[in-house]
Design a protein around this nucleic acid. Structure first.
Length: 884
RNA sequence: GGAAGUAUAGCUCAGCUGGUUAGAGCAUUCGCUUGACGUGCGAAAGGUCCAGAGUUCGAAUCUCUUUACUUCCACCA
């Protein structure tokens, strides 16, 4: 039994993938090696959350990166794909809080230290789950360099950056309106808000004048905030309110006097034209308050309950308070009306809770000075976005950027390295925990309770993972990284922040190219989500169809930056492709005699089809390489697919079969050689996309080769350039297709062979036809071939096909349906006529001939000649048949 | 309110910097136990490339307008 016969009839990915992966890893093929002889090529992974479960988005993201890094590795770069995970402060903290709740505990009860201990335990237990899952995708990451955002080294980088920015005045602490999640119990940054159109109401409320001269009506969507009102504002241009500016109002329920002020923030004609001003709970009101020097009264606590400033409402939950306040206003006769009103409400991206904007003391990064250089990196082309339309989105955000709120009232994360002195009030910001206040020397100092936004540490990822702030060898060699692959959904969260962080800290871009991909949606085009329950687990798909099939289905037909739908049929067709190449290999090996000695081949014995495929195989090599360089991965993959399936399997293998089946065939070894040669080339081109099956096949084709993943990427082989043979085989393929077509249309059974009479006066075509007689016999139901110069004596009812400068006749014993054949030929004639007219009118257009590139004009001329020749044959045949 | 994307075969989508008789996969129809594969082979049907205008010798491709859907940003109490 030879190697081919020992192969299973159906490729079974599950049986081999794990073993192949382990072998790669144990041999150290994933390792990025500092090699001065080689050029580095670096990718850092977008670190998945430790709370995360592998989803289709990861699968796509990792597959893209793996394709690029494998391609570069094979091209001879010293490739490093650096993996790691993110501590995901809010998400992880929520998990721990949930677990505590199950025990009936709160985090306050167990205290910070114990809480962090539990968080680290949790991370130890579950944090590696996602990493294991990444491996099953075939990701060729250098696991020896795996990083975690809360590793010591990365934490050091975080403190370093914080201190530097603070010392430059780019980090400050201040009291401002911040969006607060009462559920997660922390401030969040602007981009963590998700707005949605919610149904709400406009409550129209009368604020009586203090002098008893009636009332002013205001409208609000949040009546409970009136507890914190300090004024009512009107537009100074508003005629109807001109006289009341400066008058005092009685704040309902609170019974406190507040002034009517004039501010052009109030839009004329909207609502009642009078706006209640609650500086502590609305960003715009806050600004108005500042302008008018109004007090800021917070009436709600961190959990969304009314605080002591809310008088009789203190202690009530915000919505309960709203209800009660509306009731009380109604009872007091101050509620004018309630109008349903749809408005945009901010929700917490993490938990969906309606956010409460209020004043608090938070840490911010001053963004304006950082944004400029960051914008410039993209504008100047030092960083390229693929597709480039994302640059516009990036500019737009960067140019209108607000300061970044970086403090979070959470425990799981990097604690802010700021220390407050109880004696003098000075804030000491330091890399290492200070012993005393740098101002007064007091040892009575305490560290800030807050932690940093998770994205603060991920913003440093491209260089912190390579050892920065230390000048490590890794940093010197692998930085800046080459490509960043990520979804467009985190362009602000992550990409933008990495860019300005790198500009500021490294004075250099973090990466040269950003490849954006879209979302993987469900088959109906909806976002995959837990709440919809429409998520597809990549691991289940891998189990069923294999990693290669999943990867293939995610890449094929996809272009950068565009969303795609997940369709199981796509995975199935990808699995079929894996099986196809497996069986092609099986076929090749079944037709080897033990170990053929390819050193004995005689190139002179190469047949036309051998030269054709060798020459033609240069095309996918060039094109796939080019497409990969341009990040057109989907296009690249479909080119390999087409070549392997349509050209190699369906044509070359079929052409070569007779030589293989005849053990006495004089050029059997050459056929085996070419089969092997082209197959290996294809497998290499395919390897970045489908690493497992190509490795499995590679191992079958070679006995002692280490691995396809460290083999050399194919290059154009100049010694295999046979345009003549390519032309010949293309001619023959065309002929065979036409023969099959007509036979099928005439209903000729495939068992029925026909002797083919070729009529041509073209020596070149004659030569081609003669030399390809075996192919015709094999693939065109041909019993034998006669080539003649004229069509004398050919049966009128023979089936015929018209080619360029030749016609083929197949006399069959059964009469073909003459009427039908005439109809077919007439249609074909018409078709050709249309084409000929189209092209000749084009060529008779002087503008075209003079302005179009020469190659295009020549191409059209050649086409015209070809169609004319076929047309003449068709007309002549039609005449013969009509004469009958 | 601002910006972007998409619109191509029944379905899902390719089609790069304008030149192809407009492609693929799936589905459909017809025919094949051909000694790798029925997860296969062969043949076919199916498209005024959303609509309209423009630029050009030439437009699915570039420009403008319209329509439909999607997304992002901002946000008025």
């Amino acid at each position: 039994m030879n190697k081919g016969e020992s192969m299973a009839k159906v490729y079974e990915p599950c049986a081999v993938e794990k073993q192949i992966y382990d072998n790669w890893e144990s041999k150290g093929y994933f390792k990025g090696v500092i090699d001065p002889e080689k050029k580095p090529f670096t990718i850092v992974i977008p670190p998945p959350n430790i709370t995360g479960q592998l989803h289709m988005g990861h699968a796509l993201d990792e597959t893209l990166q793996d394709i690029i890094i494998r391609f570069k590795r094979m091209q001879g770069y010293s490739a490093l794909w650096l993996p790691g995970t993110d501590h995901a402060s809010i998400a992880t903290e929520a998990k721990i809080v949930d677990a505590l709740a199950k025990e009936g505990l709160t985090k306050e009860q167990i205290g910070r230290e114990e809480f962090l201990k539990r968080a680290w335990d949790w991370r130890k237990k579950y944090g590696s789950r996602i990493v294991t899952q990444l491996r099953s995708l075939g990701s060729s990451c250098d696991w020896t360099r795996e990083r975690f955002t809360m590793d010591e080294g990365l934490s050091k980088a975080v403190r370093e950056v914080f201190v530097r920015l603070y010392n430059k005045g780019l980090i400050y602490k201040g009291e401002r309106i911040t969006n607060w999640c009462p559920c997660c119990n922390t401030s969040i940054s602007d981009i963590e808000i998700e707005y949605s159109e919610d149904d709400g109401n406009f409550w129209y409320i009368n604020y009586p004048f203090a002098d008893g001269t009636g009332a002013l009506t205001i409208a609000t969507t949040r009546p409970e905030t009136l507890l914190g009102d300090v004024a009512v504002a009107v537009n100074p241009e508003d005629e109807k309110y001109k006289d009341i500016i400066g008058k005092m109002l009685i704040l309902p329920l609170v019974n406190k006097e507040i002034p009517v002020i004039a501010d052009d923030y109030v839009e004329l004609g909207f609502g009642t034209g009078a706006v209640k001003i609650t500086p502590a709970h609305d960003p715009n009101d806050y600004e108005v308050g500042k302008r008018h020097d109004l007090p800021v009264i917070r009436i709600m606590d961190d959990k969304g309950f009314i605080n002591e400033n809310g008088g009789q409402y203190a202690g009530m939950e915000r919505y309960a308070a709203r209800k009660q306040i509306v009731e009380d206003l109604k009872a007091a006769g101050l509620l004018v009306k309630i109008e349903p009103h749809k408005h945009n409400v901010g929700h917490c991206q993490r938990c969906g809770t309606v956010l409460e904007p209020f004043v608090s003391n938070q840490w911010y990064v001053k963004m304006k000075p950082l944004a400029g250089p960051a914008i410039d990196t993209v504008r100047s082309g030092r960083i390229r976005f693929v597709p480039d339309r994302f640059a516009k989105i990036y500019y737009n955000w960067m140019e209108n950027i607000q300061d970044w709120c970086i403090s979070r009232q959470l425990w799981w994360g990097h604690r802010i390295p700021a220390y407050y002195c109880a004696d003098c009030g000075h804030i000491t910001v330091a890399r290492e925990t200070p012993e005393k206040c740098e101002c007064c020397g007091s040892t009575n100092i305490t560290q800030d309770q807050d932690t940093l936004d998770t994205w603060f540490s991920s913003a440093l990822w491209p260089f912190s993972t390579l050892g920065w702030p230390d000048q490590t060898e890794d940093l010197k060699y692998f930085y800046p990284t080459d490509v960043l692959v990520t979804g467009y959904d985190i362009i602000f969260f992550w990409v933008a922040r990495m860019i300005f962080s790198a500009c500021e800290q490294m004075g250099e871009v973090p990466f040269k190219t950003v490849l954006f991909h879209g979302l993987v949606r469900d088959s109906l085009g909806r976002k995959m989500s837990k709440s919809l329950g429409n998520g597809i687990d990549p691991l289940e798909i891998i189990d069923k169809f294999g990693t290669d099939a999943l990867r293939f289905s995610l890449i094929t037909g996809n272009s950068p930056g565009n969303d795609q739908r997940y369709l199981q049929e796509k995975v199935e067709s990808a699995r079929n492709f894996a099986n196809k190449i497996w069986n092609a290999t099986r076929f090749v090996l079944m037709n080897f005699d033990n170990e053929p000695d390819f050193s004995k081949i005689d190139r002179a014995k190469f047949t036309t089809e051998d030269k054709w495929i060798l020459s033609a195989s240069n095309r996918p090599v060039n094109e796939v390489t080019e497409n990969l360089e341009k990040f057109e991965l989907g296009v690249a993959l479909s080119k390999v697919y087409d070549f392997v399936w349509d050209i190699y399997c369906d044509w070359y293998i079929e052409m070569v079969k007779p030589r293989l089946f005849d053990s006495l065939s004089p050029n059997r070894l050459e056929a085996q050689y070419v089969l092997n040669k082209v197959l290996i080339k294809c497998m290499k081109l395919l390897h970045p996309f489908m690493p497992f099956v190509t490795e499995a096949i590679f191992q079958k084709l070679y006995n002692d080769a280490p691995s396809i993943m460290i083999s050399k990427w194919p290059e154009t082989d100049g010694s295999f350039d046979f345009p003549k043979e390519e032309e010949a085989i293309n001619y023959i393929i065309d002929a065979i297709k036409r023969i099959r077509n007509i036979r099928h249309e005439m209903g000729v059974p495939s068992a029925k062979k026909a002797h083919i009479i070729a009529v041509t006066s073209d020596e070149n075509k004659e030569q081609i036809l003669r030399s390809c007689e075996p192919i015709l016999k094999n693939m065109a139901y041909c019993a034998g071939l006669t080539v003649k110069k004229d069509k004398e004596g050919i049966a009128k009812d023979a089936a015929s096909v018209q080619l360029e400068n030749a016609a083929l006749y197949m006399p069959l014993e059964e009469l073909i349906d003459i009427a039908k054949e005439i109809e077919r030929l007439t249609a074909e004639k018409q078709n050709l006529e249309n084409e000929i007219n189209r092209i000749s009118s084009k060529l008779s257009n002087e503008n075209f001939v003079s302005k179009a590139p020469k190659a295009v004009v020549d191409g059209e001329r050649a086409k015209l000649e070809k169609y004319r020749s076929i047309y003449e044959n068709t007309v002549s045949r039609l005449r013969d048949m009509n004469e009958r």
